[in-house]
Amino acid sequence: MAKRKKLVNNNVRHLITKLNPRSPISEQYRTIRTNLQFAAVDETLDTMLVTSAGPSEGKSSTVANLAIVFAQQEKKVLLVDADMRKPTVHYTFRVDNRRGLSSVLVGEMSLLEALTKSDVDGLDILSSGPIPPNPSELLGSKAMKQVIEEAKGHYDLIIFDTPPVLAVTDAQILANVVDGSLLVVRSKQTDQDSAMKAKELLEPAKSKLLGVVLNDREVTKNQYYYYGE
C-alpha cells in the first residue's frame, strides 16, 4: 500500500496544473506558456520539443504540465512521448503503452489508431509504444515527418517529450523538424558546462531555441522561477 501511495503522490506532483490550477506553481507554467508564445510571436509554433541536459531534471513534469496549460487555453494539443528509450508519459497520464509512436513509425497502425484521449479537455496523448532497437533512426525517418504533418492537420500544438540532449542524439534529430525547442535544467544539479553544452547542441538545429526553464531555484516571496535564453 505504501508503494502505491507514493506513486499516486508522484502523479499529483506531476500534474499540478490539472489538480490544482490555481496554485502558484500552476501560474508559473502559465507564465512559461505566455513566454513561449512571445518567443515565437513572428513565427508559427505548431510543433515544439522539450528536452533536458541530463536525466532527473524535471523535463517530463515540465512537458506534461505545459501540455495541460496549453489545452486549458482551449487549444487542441497532442503530447507525444518521443523518448522511446525511457518513456514516462504513459505513467504520468495512466494510459496504455502497448501502442504508440513506435507502432505508427513502423507501419503497424495509423496515427489516429494509436492516439489516446486524456482526461484533460483538448489534450490527446501519443505514448512511445513498444521500445524499438533504433529510436534515433525512427525519429529521423521520413515516416516521422509524415506523422508530424498529419498531426498538424488535427492539432493546434504538438509537444514532444524527448530524451536528454547530452545522452543521445534524439533531441537534436527532432529539433530539425519542429518549430522550437525548450531546454529544462535543474538548479544545483545541472552544472554550467553541461547546460552550455546542451544549449550549443540545440542551437545549430533548424528549429529555434525558445528558452530555458530552470527548476528548483531558491526563490524570494514574489519570485517563482527564471525563464530565458
Rank of each mutant, 00 (worst) to 15 (best):
Y225V: 03
P21V: 06
K206F: 01
M1R: 12
L111P: 04
G140F: 00
E74W: 01
T31P: 02
S56F: 12
I32M: 13
T62A: 11
V184T: 05
L66P: 05
G211T: 05
Y226M: 13
G129S: 01
K5N: 12
A82H: 03
S23G: 11
N20R: 14
V80F: 01
V69H: 08
S207T: 03
S103E: 05
D83K: 03
A82S: 05
D46L: 13
G54N: 12
K206T: 06
P164T: 08
L157H: 08
A195K: 13
G100W: 03
I148R: 00
N20G: 07
G153Q: 07
A67C: 07
N176W: 04
I32C: 10
E27C: 10
L111H: 02
E203V: 15
V95I: 13
N222G: 14
D46H: 14
P87Y: 03
A175K: 03
I16V: 15
V185R: 06
V213A: 07
E57A: 02
K145E: 08
A175C: 09
F160S: 12
L49S: 01
A198E: 05
K76C: 05
T51R: 06
V63S: 09
D42A: 10
E27L: 09
G107R: 00
S194G: 10
K199T: 11
P132E: 09
S110Y: 03
L111I: 02
E149I: 10
K197A: 11
S60V: 04
N20H: 12
I131A: 07
V168R: 01
H90P: 08
D119M: 11
L19H: 15
I131V: 13
P163R: 02
D83L: 05
D191W: 02
N20W: 07
I25C: 09
S194T: 09
E229M: 10
A53W: 12
N11L: 15
M48T: 02
L202S: 01
I32G: 10
T162N: 01
D46S: 15
A39D: 06
P132D: 08
N35W: 11
P24T: 03
A39K: 05
G140R: 00
S110T: 14
S141K: 00
N10G: 12
V69E: 08
A64N: 09
V147K: 00
V63G: 07
L66V: 05
T31V: 12
V165F: 07
R99P: 00
K6P: 05
L36S: 09
E57M: 02
V106M: 04
N215Q: 15
D179Q: 06
Q189L: 14
D193T: 15
D81K: 04
Q223N: 15
T162G: 00
G211N: 04
N20F: 10
K117E: 13
L201K: 12
E137T: 01
G140S: 04
L45P: 09
Q28N: 14
Y224S: 14
